[in-house]
């Protein structure tokens, strides 16, 4: 309620009241809290199974691919770039913002492609998703769940990028970019936690 007191003194964006913008961000935050429970449960499930297992990675199975480090780098970069897209939008540098959005889309796609390459490499090294082994299964489960959410993020980011090139956003009105930034920071954070857990546990 306190945040509403200063509403009169702050600029109200055109086309959308401050109240609406706050409502949208609030809804997105709740959505991300809900999603974080999904990932937390998955990681806890992974840890429980990992602790119980007598033998985790049998000798015939490959270690985690080093390509995961590249994935991590790409996703962190994506998160940084999308942050600058938001910053430039707020500063009304809409041209620069567009370039950053485009770069973020490319990086997001690159992350997904690299994950796919990682999976292919493991499959080639006798570790397909159907290998009857929990080390293999949990790896595909966690990375697959994350990748599914990356696909959703790419669809939204693609729409936002397209709309930004059509001039749909202004320094005052850019809910799509705000939501994209929130979501990709979230995907980034989830990935880093997931990746560290997998590294430590193997």
């Amino acid at each position: 309620m306190n945040s509403e007191d200063d509403r009169e003194t702050r600029p109200v964006p055109s086309g959308m009241t401050r109240s609406e913008a706050n409502t949208g961000r609030f809804g997105m935050a709740i959505f991300l809290i809900s999603l974080s429970i999904l990932f937390a449960a998955s990681i806890i499930g992974y840890l429980v199974v990992r602790m119980r297992a007598q033998l985790w990675r049998t000798t015939n199975l490959p270690p985690l691919p080093s390509g995961l480090w590249l994935s991590t780098g790409i996703l962190v970069a994506c998160s940084v770039v999308i942050h600058y897209a938001l910053v430039q939008t707020r500063r009304n540098n809409l041209g620069a913002a567009r370039k950053f959005l485009l770069a973020a889309s490319v990086l997001g796609t690159g992350f997904l492609v690299n994950q796919f390459v990682n999976w292919l490499a493991l499959t080639a090294a006798q570790m397909p998703p159907t290998a009857r082994n929990l080390y293999a299964f949990t790896f595909y489960m966690l990375t697959g769940l994350h990748a599914a959410h990356v696909i959703g993020g790419l669809v939204q980011l693609g729409v936002v990028t397209r709309r930004s090139f059509r001039g749909a956003y202004t320094a005052q009105y850019h809910p799509g970019i705000t939501y994209a930034a929130m979501y990709w920071h979230f995907l980034d954070a989830v990935w880093v936690v997931m990746f560290l857990v997998m590294i430590v546990q193997n």
């Binding site: 499930g45 992974y46 199974v49 119980r52 297992a53 007598q54 033998l55 159907t130 290998a131 009857r132 082994n133 929990l134 299964f137 949990t138 489960m141």
Partner: peptide, 10 residues
């Protein structure tokens, strides 16, 4: 295959 399968240590 899955984490609830006791034959795999699930």
């Amino acid at each position: 295959v899955g984490i609830f399968d006791p034959t795999l240590g699930g």
